[in-house]
Design a protein around this nucleic acid. Structure first.
Length: 373
RNA sequence: GGGGGAAUGUCCCGAGCGGCAAAGGGGGCGGACUGUAAAUCCGCUGGCUAAGCCUUCGUAGGUUCGAGUCCUACUUCCCCCA
């Protein structure tokens, strides 16, 4: 299959820059992909997300299958047109919901039966159906259907979920409809068990996926365990293909993972935290709910290119947050995504200039400065 | 002038009808958030020499082993009739 490829640019240690080419455009890596679960990056216009530097966003099989329905989206011309985002879209298979909605589903070899969190109706998701839905949505990067489990978990559960995910990987790969410029990624599982992780990665590497993801991390384990798992798995992930760390993470998680060879990230952190009153800045996290900002005339970051960070006082943002105003969520989400994208742009530049370690040190330095500036 | 009703924790609303440091909310203060059931969730919000003690329910008395709860008077506010 052609039309989907990764071209490696610079390498600095295990960190690397590159460009992923898809049928709908290029993705500069390391990349942060804003999460747009329900066909919207919450509180943002698609155009805004693009302007911040995002090359790709996520959509979600489970949520879009329930509402408005994959067939409906297809009838309307696909997800890109539906949400007015003409650039690449990666769709999650619903594997994360196997964990997050564990109370509302039943799992067996064939797949997962979800009870809709919206109206209680039953919906069966199999690897085949997940691939079909992702195709209907018009996804550029489809994810295999997997079973993501929470940590800590018993070795038995980790092994069982990993093996099931491998079998589902084969079925997903087989069900994927080859299309010019489109890809399907496998997902490494195995919890916090090194041998299981290695086994999973090796098996997936032989399945002819267009890229591989590391899943089932940042699900309850400490950061050092997560990083150890990445280091364990990385040598077994084909260097010529994109490596995607699913659902991660905090700015520090991301920089640390880039240093260990990861190319792609997604996380709800910047969007959700933004809606909850938390701003990410070069100077660390700023909880705008805190009373100490009530009379602070300073913007979050006077030197940011993002108006949300530059043109509004912390006092005003505090007021908006305390008042429950919609604009608070819009501005803080905007600020956070801007920070994440700027951080990624900085990482790409630093790797290209072979000074990534310095860049990370510099970022960490800024975060610990507190909220100065 | 006559009749009826209400006053609750030092921010507000408000449950309570003999065992109460006193339900709930709001507000306030703080925390969490990692492939989004999230504009959500979780703490704290009388004092202390703390598994106990002290001071609180308009004010002052009284009944009772025990009173936010019952009785009397007073104060303030509200409603109805003149």
């Amino acid at each position: 299959m052609t039309g989907f490829s990764l071209k490696i640019g610079a390498v600095d240690g295990a960190a690397r820059t590159g460009v992923i080419t898809t049928g709908r455009g290029e993705i500069r890596t390391p990349a942060f992909m804003p999460v747009g679960t329900a066909a919207t990056v919450k509180a943002m216009y698609a155009g805004q997300v693009r302007e911040l530097g995002a090359d790709i966003v996520l959509g979600n099989v489970y949520h879009l299958m329930l509402r408005p329905g994959a067939e409906r989206v297809a009838e309307l011309g696909g997800l890109h047109k539906f949400m007015n985002w003409p650039h690449p879209i990666l769709t999650d298979s619903g594997g994360f919901q196997v964990m997050s909605l564990a109370k509302l589903r039943k799992l067996d070899e064939k797949g997962v039966t979800f009870q809709s969190h919206i109206d209680g109706s039953k919906h069966v998701l199999t690897p085949e159906r997940s691939m079909e839905i992702q195709a209907l949505l018009g996804s550029d990067i489809q994810m295999q259907f997997d079973e993501c489990i929470r940590l800590p978990a018993s070795r038995e559960d980790q092994e069982r979920a990993m093996r099931l995910s491998l079998r589902w990987a084969e079925r997903s790969r087989k069900a994927f409809q080859e299309r010019e410029g489109r890809a399907v990624f496998g997902i490494v599982q195995g919890g916090d068990d090194r041998p299981l992780r290695v086994e999973s990665a090796k098996a997936l590497a032989d399945m002819d996926f267009h890229g591989l993801a590391v899943g089932g991390l940042a699900v309850g384990e400490p950061q050092d365990v997560m990083l150890a798992m990445i280091e364990t798995v990385e040598p077994h992930l084909p260097a010529s293909k994109p490596r995607y760390l699913m659902g991660v993470g905090t700015p520090d998680d991301i920089l640390q993972s880039v240093a260990r060879g990861i190319d792609m990230f997604d996380c709800v952190m910047p969007t959700r935290a933004g809606r909850h009153g938390l701003a990410y800045t070069r100077f660390g996290r700023v909880n705008l709910r805190n009373a100490r900002h009530a009379a602070d005339p300073r913007p979050l970051d006077p030197e940011s290119t993002c108006p949300a960070a530059r043109d509004y006082s912390r006092a005003y943002l505090h007021h908006l947050v305390k008042s429950g105003e919609i604009l608070a969520m819009m501005l803080l989400t905007w600020n956070n995504l801007a920070y994440y994208q700027d951080m990624m742009a900085g990482a790409r530049k630093a790797i290209a200039e072979r000074r990534y370690a310095d860049y990370v040190a510099q970022c960490k330095d800024g975060w610990t400065q507190g909220e100065g500036a």
